[in-house]
Write a protein that binds this DNA or RNA. Structure first.
Lengths: 352, 352
DNA sequence: TGCTAGGATGTGGGCGTTCACATTTCGCCT
DNA sequence: AGGCGAAATGTGAACGCCCACATCCTAGCA
């Protein structure tokens, strides 16, 4: 509609099956067979057709193919805020895993964690005959019940979602990871373990928080103080300030991610506390820089690559066998001990 | 699904224009008009059709639409190694900018910087009737000349690419940014400014390197020692070690990105050098954590959001007006001064 | 030599849309 | 009241491909 005169097609049209067929002196169906590697094509014919394809630069039109096959060899992904480390890693690793399986990726991120946004995103994606969807729902409020009706019968797996027995999902066990971290601190003799958590409407933040609580309870230790923050270093800095302002002693601090831990360490130092001598600090994620923080950060590693692979694996089985009973694939986190934690031998709690 | 008698096919077929048309008692064309917000549809008809659309859960089939319009409302993006901060940021910010313009994103990353990989990726994308392409080519070897023929007549803009007057491109001026950093150091009185660069087959690394050289030359100062590394903190650590092993004095260090700067700082400290008293360090990128490094890192900020917006803006004008003459849109970097740099007053060069 | 099985190839139809054009409907002016 | 033009609606034909089926050919066997 923009340009009426452009219509008569000065634009070199792309070669089609028919073009190739005519040029090679066969029917378009034969060309189609060659393209799709159908067995019953004579070797000579195939060769000739391939030559013409090459000469004409023919590429099958995916839209046309998709229209009739109802498949697109593409999977869609919807995610919140890829600016955070976790979601960002998920996107990257998913893309890699998908590509290795021959799928393409169409990516949509959500402006905010609203259902309307989710509907927009999923509508957008399902309109494209996508073979499957990967949905990252790290924030409370959008659960399986809300997402499922939007997807129609497009198979989808959820990542980083609230457990739901009806959902196909893949998760990294956050509570277990947090337990590892907290038990490590307890094992070092710490009896006052404070926490800076992520925003508690994020599932990851909540589960890490609960893992921290559970580990303390398991050791018969009362929960320390906990302040929620926003995943950022600046937030971690502020949260540590709040913790210190409470003037309650803690010799160890479990922080919901590495960035906040970095900020917290700075705040603690600003208050003349030494890490780890005065306060042991554990982070979460094991970002590549964590080993070079000052001090090198003890943290919990998540294997995002495995997460990506598992998700793609699950989704492809689901595409091939839609009746696969829903289950949850769980991956486990791993503790990485570095120099930001030490034994509480000379217990000298902060602001004690 | 709800109505088993509706169709012999077990799979609930998605509602089509025709279904809606029949159900609403109009022709499919009228429904199409409603969907596409064509003006000449009676208000009553429009309302009725919309109701049916809602009731049937009709969604236009993008593949079919794309087949006839030769547009997909989707743009494709090909990128290397999104695991690095820069490329990763580009993807995220591009997606955001695209979404605000109503485009979807199909993303492909390359296994390696080979032309074959690039061909695979672009073929994959152009087969999908994409409206345009954004191609990130941060590494030498794949330039406009190599990419252009692969794209056919799909408009594309290049990001992070070698300047080429034939190319539509958007870049952040790396040399300028490096100049800012180096001049800052010179301004502080430093006369021996070493460098840890990124891999020099990356354009960004090379241009930063050249910016560093140019600034020194401009001030009549001989170039300091330079070691190339790999963008990682571990690499920065090792590179700083190499630099120290040369036993040549330097009071300032320009590092190609923040992660390497972090590693370098650790290495310098391991050698009992104080930052910034003994060595001033400048990074590049201004990652969100840089302000909380120890010491807070002086660095050069790149506005990836603006880069994303500019790229999308350029690409959309290109889509609407394919004959737009190629040009390069240049964005400028910005110096962020923090505590990792100080004046060279009490010049006490490293290993002097 | 004739018949048949199966490999190789061609034909018709339709996937769900949009486009260009044809047709109907209606309000309004003289 | 007649007629005219614009608004509203409908029709036929693609878009490029895959599917099911029909047809042709070749070789192998009795």
């Amino acid at each position: 509609m923009p340009n009426p005169t452009a219509r008569p097609s000065p634009k070199a049209r792309r070669a089609t099956l028919d073009d190739v067929a005519q040029c090679a002196g066969v029917s378009y169906q034969t060309v189609s067979r060659v393209v799709n590697e159908h067995p019953s094509v004579a070797a000579a014919t195939r060769r000739r057709v391939l030559e013409v394809i090459d000469k004409l630069g023919y590429r099958p039109n995916r839209a046309a193919r998709s229209l009739v096959t109802r498949r697109s060899n593409t999977i869609g992904m919807v995610s919140f805020s890829t600016k955070y480390y976790g979601p960002g890693q998920m996107v990257v690793n998913l893309e890699t895993a998908l590509r290795q399986r021959g799928f393409s990726l169409t990516l949509t991120t959500l402006d905010g964690p609203s259902l309307a946004e989710m509907r927009r995103a999923i509508d957008e994606l399902t309109a494209r005959n996508l073979d499957g969807l990967v949905i990252i729902t790290p924030v409370a409020g959008i659960d399986f019940g809300a997402v499922a009706p939007l997807c129609g019968d497009t198979p989808f797996v959820m990542i980083d979602a609230l457990p739901d027995e009806r959902a196909h999902s893949v998760v990294i066990d956050q509570a277990q990871g947090a337990g590892l971290a907290t038990e490590h601190l307890i094992g070092l003799g710490h009896r006052t373990v404070a926490e800076i958590s992520g925003p508690l409407d994020w599932h990851d933040a909540r589960f890490r928080h609960e893992g921290w609580l559970a580990a303390l309870r398991g050791a018969g230790i009362g929960p320390g103080r906990s302040v929620a923050s926003d995943w950022t270093a600046a937030g971690g800095y502020a949260a540590a300030g709040e913790l210190l302002a409470l003037r309650e002693a803690f010799s160890a601090l479990f922080v919901g991610n590495d960035q906040m831990a970095l900020g917290a360490i700075r705040a603690l130092r600003d208050a003349d506390l030494r890490i780890p001598e005065d306060v042991s600090v554990v982070g979460f994620d094991d970002v590549p820089e964590a080993a070079f923080y000052d001090p090198p950060l003890t943290t919990v590693r998540q294997d995002f690559q495995a997460l990506g692979r598992q998700s793609v694996d699950y989704l492809t089985t689901l595409i091939d066998a839609p009746d696969t009973p829903p289950h949850q694939r769980v991956l486990y986190a791993q503790l990485v001990v570095r120099a930001s934690t030490t034994s509480a031998a000379a217990e000298r709690p902060a602001r004690g």
